[in-house]
Amino acid sequence: MEASEEVQKMLSSDTDILGQAEAWRRAGKGVALATVIETWGSAPRPVGSQLVVDADAHFLGSVSGGCVEGDVITEAIDVIGDGRPRLLEFGVADETAWRAGLSCGGRIRIYLERLD
């Protein structure tokens, strides 16, 4: 798959993220779900956008159009391990706390939970 197609698929509104989450869990995989719950400024993806991650770091969907997915996936794998839901926050002002930042200048808050 071409990179542009990959991005297209990530951003597509009709990608069935929740269907995939259910299918992965039923196949016995560890699965975490990340959801954008709050945004400030020019955040790249709206509230409600979701990303599903499995224990092998396969993922579908997007919470920022690519800016912070790497860090969300790393955290997701921890959540799959301990089952404790957590809140993540990303923004240009948080570069000391997070390696990743949003180049657009917005801020986002993400709820990360394990699928049990």
Binding site: E22, R25, R26, R114, L115, D116
Partner: peptide
């Protein structure tokens, strides 16, 4: 999220019915 809840949500989605998942973000 419990798998059962997700399953029920997916049933609503495929039947083209609106639904809301309510999460208390402090307690989960």
């Amino acid at each position: 999220m419990k798998l059962d809840l997700l399953s029920e949500l997916n049933v609503e989605r495929s039947a083209r019915r609106g639904a809301v998942v309510v999460t208390d973000i402090e307690t989960g």
